[in-house]
Each structure stands twice: as structure tokens, then as C-alpha cells.
Design a protein around this nucleic acid. Structure first.
Length: 470
RNA sequence: GGAGAGGUGGCCGAGUGGUUUAAGGCGAUGGUCUUGAAAACCAUUGUACGGUUCUCCGUACCGCAGGUUCGAAUCCUGUCCUCUCCGCCA
């Protein structure tokens, strides 16, 4: 979520930034937000002032009733006069009468019950108006919040401005392309031939875009997960294990909701959801907490299955296991201070690249342009591996700085050293890495003419020393 | 799943519908004292939003959401969570 104060003070500048994102439809929300924000503050000031008067009068009436030093006649007289004052809108005068700081002139000998009934009647009228005011505020704030939740994060000044993913800027390829003396095959041929991927039985169990792994295929995936976690740990990330089913609020916190609500699987009997990434769990670990700057940054890593309905990608990448409903991923996540978050983005991206290098698969870094930034990132790099079988670059990692965008939603804060004034954290996430596409890249890069696959050196310790799958 | 008990500040823990503007304690921070430390004593002590603009003022928050009332931490309803016992289970 953006800072409402930023929108309030520089609405036109915010619109210019959003315009770079090629995100149609949200510009109009900025005008709505500015208007709602003004109305909200005006209404809140008015209603809260009335509420302050009401609180004072209620308290004063209670104290008057319980005052043992005052005669019943004087109490009744004061209540009666206060009721009259309230009828004319004189809260201050009524307050002083009830608190005893104003003399109760005259003595009309009112009956005690009648006097207090009149006073209570006036207070009730006041209360009704205030309740209506608070309802108005609730309605305005709900509408404001709804609009705010749909506004994407703004791009960092260093992000190249371009309208779509077609203009993302690829970096230099790292590593060497394999030279094949045969036509390299795609993984959807290699896998079934070696009987390590079984697409048909995945479909039988759960439908299209599901797959099963068998034998060395299943072991290879498990080896990758362990390798990724160990690498992250060596880079200073602490491993956590998070629930795969979470409350809806967590998805708002990680900024999946409301925009991507239909990409997430919901449980039938509960208001809970299957996570689309471990990021959801980690991002909310410190929800509603206030951390100390001395303990920052915090680096976490978690492995989890990821569940994605892929409704928006119908018809794309249907072949093989490049785009599936369930896959395994290791996710790195960093909580840090605003002044270090861009350094941390470079770090997390370099860690992801280091893993690619260790697997000895050609890869490159893609600098993401404004039109492809997505909803929550201010700056993003993708890491792609080359897959010679299907002849394309596969995104195996995506590393983003969201600055305080998630932090505002999930209330992730810290006390800067030496102060007690809270500030929002900056959060970063990066895959490290996602298994199906890495498996594709391994199979297609390490294949041999006889259809067997060489196991990358770094994975052999995780596979009992085996060096080949055949 | 069944029965019972309970959710109050960073922690513990009081709290008969109205001087509760949440007691008291612990912890933390600052100060006094001390060669230094401890002890003792004094002071301060949450979050969000709004107003003000460097200092205060106001509103809300006692798990969450409703309700009753002039007024709710306190009464009522629902709900979530925790604990104990039983059942089931890896």
C-alpha cells in the first residue's frame, strides 16, 4: 500500500509514476482517494470533537449523581439547567454545570427524576448524531481502503521506462552454451523416456497442469530443494517452515489480494487459502510487531509447495511442466531498513545467480522495465536459465524490492536506533530457486545423445554420489 | 469432535456500569547517590488516526465482531484463539 500522505501531497506526481506501469484503470482511483481522504479527515475532526464533548458530559453526569456532598435538590437543579443548555447546543455551559464549576443560578425545584430524564434525553440525541457520524466515517474509510488496495507500488527512479515485458533488458549470458552433436530434446520427451516424469498420471490424479515425478525425477527434485536451502543458509538466510494454508489477511499483507484473488486456491469450508509462494508466510512472520534496528536486517529462507490456479494463463505453456498448478520453490526473504534495501536487492539477486552458476547452466539477469514490474515491486530482476531442448529462456527466479509496500499492509515496523518513533520496514523477496524449471534446464542442458542425463556435480552429494540418470 | 476453564499494556496481574483518565508489580530507559557496580530512591514508559506544529490536545483500541445503555474492560449474543480432560490420530 502506498503512503496516503504521498498521494495527498503529490497526486499528479503519483499519477505520472503509475502511468509508467502501463496499469490501466488505477489512475482514476487516485482522484477518488484524494477526495475520500479529504472527506474522511473533515468528518473525523467534526465527529471526534462532538465525541469529546459527549465523553466529558457523560463522565460529569456520573460524577454528579455519585456526589455525596451535594443535596439532591441541587443535583436535580443542575441536571435541569444542563439539559436546557444542551438543548441550545451549549456543551461547555452544560459541562460546567454538571462538573460543579459553574454556579447553578435559580432554584426551580425540579423533580429529580424528571430533571435527569431530560438530561439523558438530550445526551441520547447527541449520541445518535455521533453514532451516525461514526457510521459515515466507517463507510468513507472502507471505500478509501478499497481504492488504496488496488493501487500498485511505484517504480524506483532507476527502473527503465517501457510499456511491456518485450522491452526487459537482458544482461550478459553467464556460463557456456552446450555444444550438441545431436538435436537436443525437450524435457517432455526426455522425462517420460527415462520414466522420471509421468504427465499422464498427473493428469489422471488432478487434471491438466499437474504432473508426477518418479524415481530419479522425484529424487532430483528433493536434491534440488536441499541444495537450494543449504546454499541460502551459507549466504546467511535462516531457514523457516511456514503453514501452506493461511488466513486471507496474510494474502493482503503479501499483496496478492485483492488484485490476484482468483489466482489463489481457496478452501471450501473455511476462509483460508493455499499459499501461492512461501513468501506469503514469511512476509507475515513479523506482522503487527515492532522490531529493533539493531536486529536488522533479517534474512529468511523457506521451502514450500506453491499452488497457483493459472486461470489468467489459459493456453500458455501447456506443454511439459513449465507452468503448473503445484510446484516446489525455495524462497528467500529480507526485512531491512530503507537505507539498505537496494543493496539487499543486489545481494539477493547475486545469491540466486550464484546458485545458477554452481549448477553450471547458462543464465542471464533480466532487468525488468516499468511496464512489467507487477503489482508490488519498485524494482525487479528476473534470472533466466537457457533450455536448449525447448529453445527458450526460463524464468527460475524473480527478485524484488517492495520497499514499504508490503510493510504498510502487514504492519511491519521497527524502531530506528535511539528513537521510539516507528518506521516501516522494507521487504525483499527472491526465488532461490523454483524447481520445475530448474529441472527442465538440468535435463535439457545435461542430456546426452542416448537420452541419459548427467547429474550436475553439486547435486551428486545429495543423490548418493550418482553421476548419471539413465 | 465432546466437556470445562480462560483471553486486560513488553511481561505478570487487579479491576462492585459512572473520579479507571486501566491499580499494583516486573522489565526497560533516564536521573540521584557511588571510584565503579549493585542496592536504594526519583522520574519516564503502548499503538493507530485526526488536529496543532516541535509541544501539546483529541478520538479509538482490554482477542475479534455485533448488541443493550445517557455512559461498557465490566452486562448480552456470536465468533476466533489458548489451556485442561476425553475421543480420534501421524
Amino acid at each position: 500500500m502506498l503512503d496516503i500522505a504521498l498521494i495527498r501531497s503529490k497526486p499528479d506526481w503519483v499519477k505520472e509514476q503509475i502511468d509508467k506501469l502501463n496499469d490501466e484503470g488505477t489512475l482514476a482511483r487516485i482522484d477518488a482517494i484524494v477526495e475520500l481522504d479529504a472527506r474522511r479527515r473533515e468528518t473525523r475532526t467534526r465527529v471526534e470533537t462532538a465525541q469529546a464533548a459527549r465523553n466529558r458530559l457523560n463522565r460529569a453526569m456520573g460524577m454528579l449523581r455519585g456526589n455525596k456532598k451535594m443535596s439532591n435538590d441541587e443535583k436535580a437543579n443542575r441536571a435541569q439547567l444542563a439539559a436546557v443548555a444542551l438543548g441550545t447546543g451549549d456543551y461547555e455551559g452544560a459541562g460546567r454545570l454538571l462538573e460543579g464549576s459553574a454556579a447553578a443560578a435559580g432554584d426551580d425545584n425540579s423533580d429529580s427524576k424528571t430533571a435527569f430524564d431530560a438530561l439523558i434525553g438530550e445526551l441520547r440525541k447527541m449520541g445518535d448524531a455521533i453514532d451516525a457520524g461514526f457510521q459515515q466515517i466507517d463507510a468513507i474509510e472502507a471505500e478509501l481502503q478499497e481504492n488504496m488496495l488496488w493501487i500498485p507500488n511505484l517504480p524506483h527512479a532507476s527502473v527503465p521506462v517501457a510499456e511491456s515485458e518485450d522491452y526487459n533488458i537482458p544482461g550478459q549470458m553467464q556460463g557456456d552454451l552446450r555444444e550438441f552433436d545431436f538435436e537436443p530434446k525437450p524435457h517432455w520427451e526426455l522425462g517420460p523416456a527415462l520414466d522420471i516424469i509421468d504427465f499422464e498420471r498427473g493428469v489422471k490424479l488432478a487434471g491438466s497442469r499437474y504432473f508426477t515425478l518418479k524415481g530419479w525425477g522425484a529424487r532430483l527434485q528433493r536434491a534440488l530443494i536441499s541444495f537450494f536451502l543449504d546454499e541460502a543458509r551459507d549466504n546467511g538466510f535462516s531457514e523457516v517452515y511456514v503453514p501452506y494454508i493461511v488466513h486471507g489477511e496474510m494474502l493482503y499483507g503479501a499483496s496478492q489480494f485483492p488484485k490476484f484473488e482468483d489466482t489463489v486456491y481457496k478452501l471450501a469450508d473455511e476462509e483460508k487459502y493455499l499459499i501461492p509462494t512461501a513468501e506469503v508466510g514469511i512476509a507475515n512472520l513479523h506482522r503487527d510487531e515492532i522490531l529493533e534496528e539493531a536486529n536488522l536486517p533479517l534474512h529468511y529462507v523457506a521451502h514450500s509447495p506453491c499452488f497457483r490456479s493459472e486461470k489468467a494463463s489459459a493456453g500458455r505453456d501447456v506443454r511439459g511442466m513449465k507452468r503448473v498448478h503445484q510446484f516446489e520453490k525455495v524462497e528467500m526473504f529480507t526485512f531491512t531498513t530503507p537505507d539498505t534495501s537496494y543493496d539487499e536487492l543486489e545481494n539477493i539477486t547475486e545469491y540466486a545467480e550464484k546458485i545458477c552458476a554452481k549448477l553450471e547452466i547458462p543464465y542471464r539477469r533480466l532487468e525488468i522495465v516499468t511496464g512489467d514490474l507487477g503489482f508490488s515491486a519498485t524494482k525487479k530482476y528476473d534470472i533466466e536459465m537457457w533450455a536448449p531442448g525447448c529453445g527458450e529462456w526460463l524464468e527460475v527466479s524473480s527478485c524484488s524490492n517492495t520497499e514499504d509496500f508490503q510493510a504498510r499492509r502487514a504492519m511491519l515496523r521497527y524502531y530506528p536506533s535511539g528513537t521510539r518513533k516507528t518506521r516501516y520496514l522494507h521487504t525483499l523477496n527472491g526465488s532461490g530457486l523454483a524447481t520445475p524449471r530448474v529441472m527442465i534446464a538440468i535435463m535439457e542442458n545435461y542430456q546426452r545423445s542416448d537420452g541419459s542425463i548427467v547429474i550436475p556435480d553439486v547435486l551428486r552429494p545429495y543423490l548418493g554420489g550418482a553421476d548419471i540418470i539413465n
